[in-house]
């Protein structure tokens, strides 16, 4: 069984569109009849990754790949990168500006929530180059063919 790959662009500081990429992923998962809890977990993770790309990433791309074993979501951006990933992963850590915090972002919960919801999560980043997230979901995933 071959599954197509999907790509969705993410725009820097565009809060009108922020969430669109996640919504597209969600729609595809629903069309594939993924179970509700899996869709919920993937949606939370996608939204957090997308908002981070909007706020810190200076544009990005979310891509979705699927096979019989699982769902693979990649979010890449060309932002400033993360100097200390361990610190960034800590609940409550945030470098959000005052303006961004006033919008209700910057609780330092995004990355920890991706971690909690994904079955596998890896993040790599280079300062001055950008950040790449790989978010995998396997549990609860069954395809109609499988």
């Amino acid at each position: 069984m071959h599954y197509p790959r999907h790509e969705f662009p993410i725009k820097e500081m565009d809060f009108v569109r922020a969430g669109e990429a996640s919504l597209q992923v969600k729609k595809i998962l629903r069309e594939m009849k993924a179970e509700n809890d899996l869709v919920r977990r993937a949606t939370i993770a996608c939204y957090e990754a997308e908002i981070n790309a909007v706020v810190y990433g200076r544009d990005g791309v979310m891509s979705l790949e699927v096979d019989d074993e699982g769902i693979y979501i990649y979010v890449e951006d060309k932002g400033d990168g993360i100097p200390d990933i361990e610190q960034a992963m800590m609940e409550g850590f945030s470098t959000a500006t005052e303006e961004i915090r006033e919008m209700g972002f910057g609780a330092g919960m995004g990355l920890p929530n991706i971690m909690k919801n994904a079955d596998e999560f890896t993040i790599s980043s280079a300062v001055g180059e950008g950040t790449r997230l790989k978010i995998i979901f396997r549990s609860g995933w069954t395809t109609e063919e499988a």
Partner: peptide, 26 residues
Amino acid sequence: LLSDVMANADTGQVWITLQAHINIVA
């Protein structure tokens, strides 16, 4: 806090908030 609502609100609920910017729709 949008991350909190994303993680903890549930399908079918109403969300009570002071945030009125466009991303609450997403």
